[in-house]
Write a protein that binds this DNA or RNA. Structure first.
Length: 437
RNA sequence: CGGGACGUGGCGCAGCCCGGUAGCGUACUUGCAUGGGGUGCAAGGGGUCGCAAGUUCGAAUCUUGUCGUCCCGACCA
């Protein structure tokens, strides 16, 4: 069997299956292109979310929550913004159902037509800025630094699991500032937060940059982004930060009195990143045996698998495993002892490799006699016997090593795939044959 | 929206060309053995063949329509 790294996005679907159910709920067209995130996948998302959330708070932001529905008229206020999103919006037109007089099920009550249709948010700039109008009067109200964790819907013509689903989870930061300089500074600062998160938590090296006019966020003056290189040689946008200038302030009439007692429009930014990051993780690090998750965000960092014959051995191993587990938990390591008797050790090995657990410890009777355990790391598939003495500290250090090694492996791959060329012909050829930047 | 492939137990698939009692793998249930890399043997349960119309004595199979999924393209802050 070839152990070649899978090179196409669809080949990753096997590993995605462990995290989500693809293709939506109940095979129903109305939820086509949505995804159902399984507990294991959601735990991964929660870890990423928590780490990002902490970084937002450390940079002075607070969380809030705004409505899912956006009145249609709000969306028509910023011309470029409408242009960019109008084609992919889901629209609510009625507010009630009734029993079908012709029998069988329910129908939309034609009497219950909304006077103004509601748009299910594809992003929240409009509803947030219509709110900010009431919140901002003076320079003393600025800066306003708010983030929202939410789901949004974009009715894309063609969805791609994780990378572009019809409904997705994300966070969107929306800030208001007194000066252009301060807003630009915020835009850049949040891009840096994303870059730091990608590199330190996801072990994903990224390149920061500014988008061209055609790729710019609808309504932004400048869009900054981070781009990561996947194992198939293709780049993936992993986060964006927009300098919105005064576009939304003008559209929603958000003004403040400055220190000179003059009315001025506020300066804005917005920035977001989504469950697409999970897709980035999979495509950047996984191999033919499944996911490889960086220890810092892996839902499970260590799994302990007992190998025994008979109750006598089982008791000995159980006791030792629980002792080690307690030490690891003290060190803050996320560990599971899988003593489920329904599955055999070999089955468990394969299962946790598929799930991407960074470190596996196997404990058998033979090991205990020798005072060792077998430690296997997921990223290199390397196995070795390690002394029981100080095993918890050893593993704690190993998790750091894995995090570090994963980043440097991805970075080496990325750097090998940066090619300089001055000719268009060669550029096209490189993209076809080698990929990369 | 243009091109291509596909839709059959929970999951993955064969059967369709050439119409005739719906099959395989896996998962699930039970029992015995096994237990250091996805155990072996045996016995079980589970399917309106996406939907609709048509052809036919008879349709998973042929025809038409329709819905959906995936891939390529266009589009994609």
């Amino acid at each position: 069997m070839s152990k070649e790294i899978k090179s196409r996005q669809e080949d990753y679907s096997q590993w995605y299956n462990d995290l989500v159910i693809k293709g939506g709920l109940a095979d129903h067209s109305a939820v086509r292109g949505c995804m159902v995130i399984k507990p294991h996948g959601f735990a991964l998302w929660e870890n990423m979310r928590d780490a990002l959330d902490k970084m937002f708070k450390d940079t002075g932001h607070v969380n809030a929550y705004f409505p899912l529905f956006i009145p249609k008229s709000f969306l028509s206020k910023e011309a470029a913004h409408v242009e960019g999103f109008a084609k992919e919006c889901a629209v609510v037109t009625h507010y009630r159902l009734k029993n079908d007089p012709n029998g069988g099920g329910v129908i939309v009550d034609p009497e219950a037509k909304l006077e103004e249709e509601l748009i299910i948010r594809p992003t929240s700039e409009t509803i947030i800025w219509s709110t900010y109008k009431d919140w901002i009067q003076s320079y003393r109200d600025l800066p306003l630094l708010i983030n929202q964790w939410a789901n949004v819907v974009r009715w894309e013509m063609r969805t791609r699991l994780f990378l572009r689903t019809a409904e997705f989870l994300w966070q969107e930061g929306h800030t208001a500032h007194a000066t252009s300089e301060e807003a630009v500074e915020e835009t850049v600062k949040m891009l840096d937060v994303y870059a730091t998160f990608a590199e330190e938590f996801m072990a994903l090296p990224v390149i920061k940059g500014v988008k061209t006019e055609s790729e710019r966020f609808a309504g932004a003056q400048d869009t900054y982004c981070i781009e990561a290189l996947m194992q198939d040689g293709k780049a993936l946008q992993a986060g964006t930060s927009h300098f919105l200038a005064q576009n939304f302030a003008k559209a929603f009439d958000v003004k403040f009195l400055n220190k000179e007692n003059k009315l001025e429009y506020v300066w804005a930014t917005s920035w977001g990143t989504s469950t697409r990051l999970i897709g980035a993780l999979v495509m950047a690090h996984s191999d033919d045996d499944g996911l490889i998750l960086p220890p810092k965000i892996a839902p499970l960092q260590v799994v302990i698998v007992p190998i025994y014959k008979g109750d006598e051995q089982k008791e000995l191993i159980d006791a030792k495993a629980k002792e080690i587990m307690a030490h690891l938990k003290n060190l803050g390591v996320r560990v599971k002892y899988d003593n489920n008797e329904n599955n055999r050790p070999g089955w468990k090995f394969a299962e946790y490799e598929l799930k991407g657990v960074p470190v596996r410890m196997a404990i058998g009777a033979r090991d205990l006699e020798k005072g060792v355990v077998e430690i296997a790391r997921r990223d290199t598939k390397e196995k070795k016997a390690v002394k029981l003495d100080g095993i918890a500290q050893y593993i704690d250090g190993l998790l750091l090593d894995i995090q570090h090694d994963m980043f440097h492996k991805a970075k080496a791959y990325r750097d090998e795939h940066i090619t300089k060329t001055d000719s268009w012909e060669e550029f096209e050829k490189l993209l076809d044959e080698k990929g990369g930047f």
